[in-house]
Amino acid sequence: MVDPQRAAITLAINGAEQHLEVDTRATLLDVLRERLDLIGAKKGCDHGQCGSCTVLIDGRRAKSCLALAVALDGSSITTVEGLADGDELHPLQAAFIDHDAFQCGYCTPGQICSAIGMLEEARAEGAELTPEAIRERMSGNICRCGAYPNIVAAIAEVAE
């Protein structure tokens, strides 16, 4: 008999196809963290209120705590672990280090993934990214350490 609480799905995660049997109640965030040991996506609230779980789903930024894994069958997911090219950091990762854009680092993977999605959104809209626009567009990612000015500086550098 088929267990109604389990479902088989396929996700392309950081470029690699994964066949998974998931609990239908499981969020993408929990699948990443607890099943696949991709702990770069963080759980700050589990309710879509902080942004620390932000990943890219089919290229768009999304809060993985709000996404049920079972509903994402066939999607491609990029997490912070998938950004660097070998030893070569993604420009945003490098800029975050250079600008000291984090303290505890817990919001950081979410900030970086969110920034990647945001830069793409702005590019598609042809919108100008003033510091004020960056602040507004990045306000879904809370940083309790208060690294905001450095986060904006890091993103602005890459946006140029």
Binding site: T79, F102, T108
Partner: peptide, 27 residues
């Protein structure tokens, strides 16, 4: 001086408390 653990934090390699992998685990 840049943060020593900066690279680990921006790549998702830094493990926080319950992110350690102790083998068979319960919740």
């Amino acid at each position: 001086v840049r943060r020593i653990e900066g690279r680990a934090k921006v790549t998702g390699a830094a493990r926080y408390a319950v992110e350690h992998d102790p083998g068979e685990v319960a919740y």
